[in-house]
Structures are given as structure tokens and as C-alpha cells.
Write a protein that binds this DNA or RNA. Sequence first.
DNA 1: CAAGATTATACATCTATCTGCATAAAAATA
DNA 2: TATTTTTATGCAGATAGATGTATAATCTTG
Lengths: 155, 155
Amino acid sequence: MYNLAFMSAGKTFRHGQILRLVSGERIASQDDLRRRLAQQRLRVTQATLSRDLHELKLVKTTEGYKQTAAISEESASLPPLARALREFLLDVRPAENMLVLKTPPSGAQPLAAAVDASKFPEIAGTIAGDDTVLIITSNKKTRISLQQKIEALLK
Amino acid sequence: MYNLAFMSAGKTFRHGQILRLVSGERIASQDDLRRRLAQQRLRVTQATLSRDLHELKLVKTTEGYKQTAAISEESASLPPLARALREFLLDVRPAENMLVLKTPPSGAQPLAAAVDASKFPEIAGTIAGDDTVLIITSNKKTRISLQQKIEALLK
DNA sequence: CAAGATTATACATCTATCTGCATAAAAATA
DNA sequence: TATTTTTATGCAGATAGATGTATAATCTTG
């Protein structure tokens, strides 16, 4: 069965198609976009597209919806830190003025990105491998402060 | 020993704590595990732990719940640490609660994998670049202890 | 084998996410 | 400004995942 509103191709795929469409042609309105997507059997309502465009940080220009060139790559859509922690964090290991976060394989980079984006004043820098994120703080006290904040996000 | 008083969180973090617990002590039953987790504020029922252990592919042995043979084989397929050290280690550089291992180009990743597999209790985490492995320990004393063990393996 | 201990699971609940519908809010246009 | 077009959002229903309860199934031990 295809797309009966709920179990369809999924939001992620739709987002990809939206990005493809807006980069290739002039999409003048959300209803325009709705019609173009419907042509490839992606049937959703304008309300959903309003939310999609917001999540994708697309803005309306005279050339139709476009990515904000400057911001397009990075800050586009990092999940909030609490979310990343819930998804990736396996263990927290304090070590003097550092904090080691353990993740499943391949989890360290996305978690580190979320940590970086949160811009904690305690953090001097982070380094991530495959399953390990190393957070460096200026001293032990700041590490404790940071650790408390991170632990608070887990509940 | 790492974290003492910890928080309640999602399934991922609980899984990480379960792995940490079973690798460090004998967990004889699911109720045992439940009690140990409860000590760090992770309160779940035996039913949930039954599901967790299945997802983590932990099996009950006379030594308590442990990783399966499949994963044991994988870690067994890694060269023993002593061998990796002899093959790759160029220099050992202590730095407070850290130990920096220098290797020839491309030597850091395999050496770090061997270090990880050895599961030293002193190690909070490791991060490897191309010719440098950074090992984080909880404090200077544990770093000294680890350093002695590693240097002993070189003889 | 029987009794107790341990583990697995069917079912219901709770929560989070996604979506459509209806409509409010805002923007564009006449 | 009034009307029309476009976009945003409150609300409710659907779905999926996680978990507790109760209980069934299995294992251990005497």
C-alpha cells in the first residue's frame, strides 16, 4: 500500500525531495510544492510542508523557496543536545579536567557536534573518535559544573 | 570506579551501564542486575532487563552475564596488546592524567583498537589520530599505573 | 519429580512523533 | 482598507517504541 497519510515514504525522504525540488526549480508557494510532490506520489498537506520548510530552514525568496546560503550546511538541523545524549550516550567518565563520553560505534561524531553546538562556557574544546568523545575543560571545577549540566539533561 | 551517583535516562544509557557492570563484576541474575542498576538510580524491572540482555546479546555463564562468543571472537581476532605495542609503539609520553603513544604513520588506529580491547580499568577513553594515540585516565595515579603495565609489556 | 528460582512474553499504558483538519495569522494584492 | 492568497498552528487521531504488570515458560535444586 502506498501513502495513506501515515505510513508513507517518511519524513526524511520527503525532506530530501523538497531539497532537490527547490534547488532545481522555482517553488513559489507551499501549495506549489505540494503539487510537485504529489506528482511523485508524495501526498501531504500544506500544513506538513509548512513544518518541513521550517525544519529545513528554507526561506521564501523571489526565486522561490531556497536555502539560506550561509547557514545551509551546518546549523541546519542539529538535534538538541538532550536528544543526542538520549540516543548516543552509553557512559560518562570524569577524568580531572576532562569528561569522556562513551557511545556506540559511530556515535561519537554526532554527539560531539551536538555538544559543540550547545556552546557551554565550560568547554575549551572537544575531540571525537569513533565511540569516544573527549571534552576538555579549563580545570576540574569547570568539569564538575559541566558534568552536572550534562547529567541533568539525561533525566 | 567511574560514576557513582547517576541519573535515570533512556534505554541507550542503561545499555551502556549494563555493559559496564557485566564487564566488571559477576552479575548472576537479572534481579542482581536490577539491584545494581537501582544503586545508580536506574530503576527498571526484571522484564525490561530480560529485553535489554537480549538486545545486547549477553548470555548467562557461570561467571554471570557476559558478551557472546561472536564478540569474543572479534576481540580475539585483534592482535594482543603486547604484539601491537611491539609493532607500532614509538614513544610513550606521560602528561598528568593522560598517556600519549606515538606510532609510525597509520599506526595509531590499530594500536588504539588493541588498547581498547584490553579493557584496562584505568582507562576512561582513548582517541586516535594518524600517528598519535591519546589515552585518558581518571587521574595521575591511574595513569602511572597504566604506564607501568604498558611498559612492562614491552620487555 | 516437585518446589522454588529465574527468565520470557502477552497485554495494556504511556510517551513521543508525525500528520491532517480546521482555522488563525500574516502577507500580498486589488 | 478590504479581499484574497499564503503560511502558521492548536487540536486530535494514528503509529511506534519503551516499559510495567501479571503470568507463562524454563531452569535449578533437592
